[in-house]
Amino acid sequence: MPFKGKAETFNASIATLDIGTGEKTIRLGGQNVLPLYAFDASMENPPRVGVEISDEGLEGYTPKLLEYYAGASDVVSIAKKAAAMEGADFVCLRLDSADPNGKNTSIEDCVKLAKEVCAAIDKPLTIMGSRNVEKDGALFEKLAEALQGENVLLLSAREEDYKKVGASGLAYNQKVGAESAVDINLAKQLNVLLTQLGVAPKNIGMNLGSAAAGYGFEYVASTMERVKSAALSQNDTMLQMPVITPVALETWAVKESIVSESEVPEWGDMEERAIHMETVTAMACLASGSDAVILRHPVSVSKISALIGALL
C-alpha cells in the first residue's frame, strides 16, 4: 500500500514581475504552488536574492563586509562589487542620505548617483527611497524619469505617497513596489488603489512588511501565508503580485546583530551573529512567501542562493 498523498497545485498562479531589461532581466513569480513547494509542480521562476547597498557607503559595516568591499571607495564601485557577489540576482540601492532629517542630499544628486549605479552594474536595480513620505514623492518622480528604459523597481509606494510614486512608475514605465504594514487587507487595498491609478498588476510588486526573527515575525509569516493562500486558492488577482522583502534592513538593527562581543562575551563574534540572524530570517521569509529577499552579507547571499537552488 503506497503513500497516497497528492500534489497540491492551484488553478490560479502568482503573477510574474520582470525587473531590468534585456539580458539582465529577472522574472519573479509564476508558480501555482505554495512557496518553495517545487515538489508539487515547478516553481517556474526561482525566488531571487538582492544585495542592498546604501548611498551613505559602508558606514557601520562589520570587518568581513569591509573586507569584501575593500578598494571600493565610492558608491558606484560598491554597487559593482555588490552585483558581483556570489548568488546575487539584483541590487537594491538605498537612498538613505536623501532623508530630510539626515544629510538631506538633493534630488538631483540622488538621481545622478542612481543613474551611475544603474549604468555600472550588470544586474537589475531596485531603489529604496529616503523613507520620508514628502521627499520620496518628488524623489521617485525624478528617478523614474531619469532611469527610463531601465525597468527598475521603485521601493516603495505607501498608503501616504502611492499616488505620486504610482504615477511616476506609470508615466516612465517602471515597476512599483507597494509597501504595507503586515496586514492582508491593507496590502490588497493598496494594490487596488494603484491599479485604479492605472498601474497594471504586472507592474506591481509587494512589500508586505518584515521583521527580524524573534521580533514580531509571526505576524509577517502569517500575513504572507494568508496572502499566498488567497492568491492561489481564491484566485484573488489583487494579491497575486510577487512579494519582495527587505530582510537586512530589519536584521542588522536588532540587538543580536549589533551588540559587541565585549558587552556580551558568551554570545561570541558579532558578525557571525548578524549573519545567522540574516539567513534565518531570510529563509523563514522564503518559506512563508517572499519571492525575493534583500540581504547584505556575502555569506548570507551565497548560502541563501545555494539553498534556493537545492530546493528547486
Binding site: A212, A213, G214, Y215, G216, F217, E218, A221, S222, E256, E266, W267, G268, D269, E272, R273, I275, H276, M277, V280, T281, A284
Partner: peptide, 19 residues
C-alpha cells in the same frame, strides 16, 4: 552556538505563539 540559537529560538517562539 549562541549565534545560531538567538535567531532560531526567537523564530520558534514567534511561530508557536497562539495567534
Amino acid at each position: 552556538s549562541y549565534a545560531q540559537a538567538l535567531p532560531l529560538y526567537g523564530l520558534r517562539q514567534n511561530l508557536f505563539t497562539d495567534p
